[in-house]
């Protein structure tokens, strides 16, 4: 008999300590805890109480928050929106897509109690409008158009004069370049491999500048035009015959980035 009683005492002490622990937790809520109620005769139907928290209270869209609640003297707990009926004490992960205030309602024999917790959802700034796309497409088109409309000019051996049969082509180049005034470009002067390497550096320069002068006479702005001579160092054709040589004696146009 005494053994049973002792057991009862242990059980009682356990309940008391649990209740004390609960009241300690409540201290966090800054209200001084009421003295522990007398254990043996519970008062008839005490009023329920509930606390609800969201951790974290602020999230980015796509992240989740955890709701935590704890009710006393309650038979059921209902959390809205979306969560529904839940256990008296517990937690639940939520993924709201916009800011929302959750309400927890605890219902028991002694009545109802509610608590709120707000989850603020930060919506990320909208992705930058795709401006690369609109300029990119015309840009690509411009270099394509440049390639399609602006052609190499060929020269006679050891000469830098614009050949009569190249004038029409150069005129067309000039027309397109005038219509596309934003295009800046480099004129490269090139030579075939005959003649001295140094002299060809000078000859390539004359070829690039002969074309430049023609373009200036057509009204193009000098500031758009860079010239350079590669002499005989950048052939497009590597055989040693006139077919190759005449393709290498050229002023090439390249669009500047």
């Amino acid at each position: 008999m005494t053994l049973f009683r002792r057991k009862d005492v242990v059980l009682l002490l356990l309940i008391v300590s649990v209740l004390m622990a609960a009241s300690c937790k409540k201290r966090v809520a800054a209200t001084p805890p009421p003295p522990p109620p007398p254990v043996a005769p519970a008062p008839p139907a005490p009023a329920p109480a509930i606390t609800l928290r969201a951790q974290p209270a602020t999230i980015e869209r796509g992240q989740s928050s955890t709701l935590q609640w704890e009710a006393r003297n309650a038979a059921t707990v209902q959390i809205d929106p979306e969560v529904g009926q839940v256990a008296v004490t517990g937690n639940r992960q939520v993924n709201p897509t916009s800011s929302v205030t959750y309400t927890a309602r605890a219902t028991g024999p002694g009545g109802t109690a509610t608590d709120n917790a707000r989850v603020t959802v930060n919506v990320p700034p909208p992705p930058p409008p795709p401006p690369p796309a609109p300029p990119k497409t015309p840009d690509k088109t411009i270099s394509q158009l440049f390639l399609e409309n602006v052609h190499e000019i060929y020269f006679d051996y050891d000469k830098a004069d614009i050949r009569p049969d190249e004038v029409a082509k150069l005129q067309n180049n000039a027309t397109w370049l005038k219509q596309n005034a934003s295009v800046r470009f480099t004129l490269e002067g090139h030579c075939d491999e005959r003649g001295s390497e140094e002299y060809n550096l000078g000859l390539g320069d004359r070829r690039a500048n002969a074309v430049k002068e023609f373009l200036l006479s057509q009204g193009l702005a000098a500031s758009r035009i860079n010239t350079v001579s590669y002499g005989e160092e950048r052939p497009v054709c590597h055989e040693q015959n006139e077919d190759c040589y005449k393709r290498n004696r050229r002023a090439a146009f390249t669009m500047n980035p």
């Binding site: 002067g189 550096l201 000078g202 320069d205 004359r206 690039a208 500048n209 010239t227 001579s229």
Partner: peptide, 26 residues
């Protein structure tokens, strides 16, 4: 401009070279 073919003066203080910096030719 296109600047090429350097040459040192015998005392080492100067360089002569060709350049098309003024346009038209070297």
């Amino acid at each position: 401009g296109t600047t090429t073919t350097p040459a040192w003066s015998p005392d080492g203080s100067l360089l002569a070279f060709a350049t098309s910096r003024d346009g038209s030719d070297t």
